[in-house]
């Protein structure tokens, strides 16, 4: 029941995105131009810490701009229509799934361009990829609920950043710690604790969204 609903809603999101391709290409362009800007202003980065921090900060900002539209773009009438045919849980889960696919794709593209323009320092690629996947999922899950909150207010784009940055910090700092280990070439077995923390944060965020979104929804 819920699964079918989620499937339908995700399909709807993809169709909507495909119809207005400017959003997708806009995100791509955003990532590429930011990375290029960093390339021009930083020259080449050899220091692993700076490389790492810059990568995650770029990704953080890019994911904010990618996810922020997810609730804001919905018009009043369309929301009313969705309200009558779906459950709030289905809607929030489908949005989280769709946004995380979007952000994961974006982060992979970002990694490719970032390595190309600024340099590639990672020694354990698979560990870095784990951090990237878990992190992108966490970012998009947090931002989806924040987008739902900020869509209810007046100055929504600025508010989205104010609300989500301090909340994203536990995720961001864990990610930076884990990917630093990946850059140093640590094996997965030595950093299980960080991976478990990341999984835990992702799970907490999804559960909280699932529980809290119905209250936002009923207006």
């Amino acid at each position: 029941m819920l699964l079918n609903e989620i499937k339908g809603l995700v399909k709807r999101e993809i169709t909507l995105e495909w119809r207005q391709k400017y959003a997708l290409s806009g995100i791509l362009l955003y990532v590429i131009s930011t990375v290029y800007l960093c390339n021009l202003s930083f020259d080449r980065i050899i220091d692993a810490n700076t490389w790492n921090a810059l990568f995650w900060v770029i990704l953080l900002f890019a994911s904010v701009s990618a996810v922020s539209k997810s609730f804001i773009q919905e018009r009043e009438g369309r929301l009313l229509y969705l309200y009558s045919i779906t459950s709030p849980q289905g809607l929030i889960l489908s949005k989280i799934i769709y946004n995380s696919v979007l952000v994961i794709l974006m982060s992979l593209i970002c990694l490719i361009f970032y390595s190309g323009f600024i340099g590639y320092l990672v020694q354990n690629f698979w560990l870095f990829l784990t951090a990237l996947l878990l992190g992108s999922f966490g970012f998009s899950a947090i931002l989806t609920l924040m987008s739902a909150i900020s869509s209810k207010t007046r100055g929504n784009q600025t508010l989205m950043a104010i609300l989500s940055f301090p909340i994203q910090l536990p995720l961001l700092l864990t990610l930076i710690a884990l990917s630093k280990k990946a850059i140093e070439g640590e094996v997965l077995a030595n950093c299980y604790d960080l991976v478990v923390i990341l999984l835990g944060i992702d799970l907490i965020v999804v559960v909280l969204s699932y529980l809290l979104f119905p209250y936002l929804w009923r207006d």
Partner: peptide, 12 residues
């Protein structure tokens, strides 16, 4: 909305 944000933020 403030209540929802406050719960979410406190847990995180």
């Amino acid at each position: 909305i403030a209540a929802v944000y406050s719960i979410f933020a406190y847990v995180l």
